[in-house]
């Protein structure tokens, strides 16, 4: 049981973070709060991906040293952290900010039209 907790507690923390973001997206009525929840949700998922890349036992960063670059040393696959999830998540972070900009632009547009950020009031006016 203890071994299971030690091996898996990271994943559980990511799930808790994701739940916080999900709760904010569903329940909160303020639109900016919903966007904050979306941000937390995305970061939790990115965190999960990055954690799959981690290798325990003295793995180095995915940047080669001079000795490795000039061929004096062979590159051990187990000695380097997996760079592929980093690449995917790096693009995901920048897309996250782009979507954040568009979402905030939409929020400003809504505020200009309905003069409130509360979802319930907007729905009431729309009816």
């Amino acid at each position: 049981m203890i071994e299971l907790v030690i091996a898996k507690y990271n994943y559980w923390i990511y799930v808790i973070l994701m739940m916080i973001g999900f709760y904010a997206m569903i329940v909160k009525t303020n639109l900016v709060k919903k966007i904050i929840g979306m941000n937390i949700f995305q970061t939790a998922i990115i965190l999960f991906y990055i954690s799959t890349a981690y290798k325990m036992g003295g793995a180095t960063l995915p940047i080669m040293t001079d000795a490795q670059a000039h061929g004096h040393e062979a590159v051990l696959v187990d000695g380097v952290i997996n760079p592929l999830p980093h690449v995917l998540m790096l693009t995901a972070i920048v897309v996250m900010v782009a979507t954040l900009g568009v979402a905030l632009a939409i929020v400003i547009h809504i505020y200009r039209r309905y003069n409130t950020l509360n979802e319930d009031e907007i729905l009431k006016v729309m009816k």
Binding site: I46, I50, T60, L61, I81, I93, M96, L100, I108, Y111
Partner: peptide, 30 residues
């Protein structure tokens, strides 16, 4: 966790520009 590139991106993109955008939008609305 050893993801230095991702950490750099997060520090500059999300903690920098994202916060600025949030503050600008909140100042513009309420």
């Amino acid at each position: 966790m050893g993801a230095v590139d991702v950490a750099f991106t997060e520090a500059s993109v999300s903690a920098g520009i994202g916060t600025i955008l949030f503050v600008a939008a909140v100042m513009k609305t309420t």
